[in-house]
């Protein structure tokens, strides 16, 4: 996998997650007045960073010798392409008297952040393609 396809693939995944996060926030905001509704959040970036770090570590570090596959490995390598976004229901907290825990203002800020993040990702994607275009010209 070369650096161009890798960047395009990573940006593609990040854009997918932004869209998912946007839908989740839209659902939270639409249900901001529903009794006993609990908000959902999306976790992705931390798991992605862990996978990318594991790739880096797998390259330049010593590995413990094990005599059996089931032995604990010193370094485990995770392919970043196997990392999926996780939706997490914040089921334990309550902030309103009706059991709802959506903070409409915080949700609106999340939506704005997701939107700008997505636009940044599209610009970076555009940059990747424009560089390829320069080479092809």
């Amino acid at each position: 996998m070369n650096s161009f396809t890798r960047s395009v693939d990573l940006l593609h995944r990040a854009m997918d997650v932004s869209t998912l996060r946007y839908s989740v926030s839209a659902n939270n905001l639409a249900n901001a007045g529903v009794p006993n509704f609990k908000r959902t959040t999306v976790n992705f970036e931390a798991a992605l960073k862990e996978a990318i770090d594991s790739e880096k570590n797998a390259k330049d570090s010593f590995v413990l010798k094990t005599s059996d596959d089931r032995h604990i490995q010193s370094k485990t390598y995770t392919d970043y392409r196997t990392v999926e976004p996780r939706r997490v229901l914040d089921y334990a907290t309550t902030s309103d008297a009706n059991g709802n825990n959506v903070d409409a203002e915080a949700e609106a800020m999340d939506i704005l952040k997701t939107q700008l993040n997505y636009q940044l990702l599209t610009q970076m994607q555009s940059f990747q393609f424009s560089q390829m275009h320069i080479v092809l010209k």
Partner: peptide, 13 residues
Amino acid sequence: GSKEMFQSALQIG
């Protein structure tokens, strides 16, 4: 916001 996101996706390339 959704509309703006899709518009920016269409600008890629």
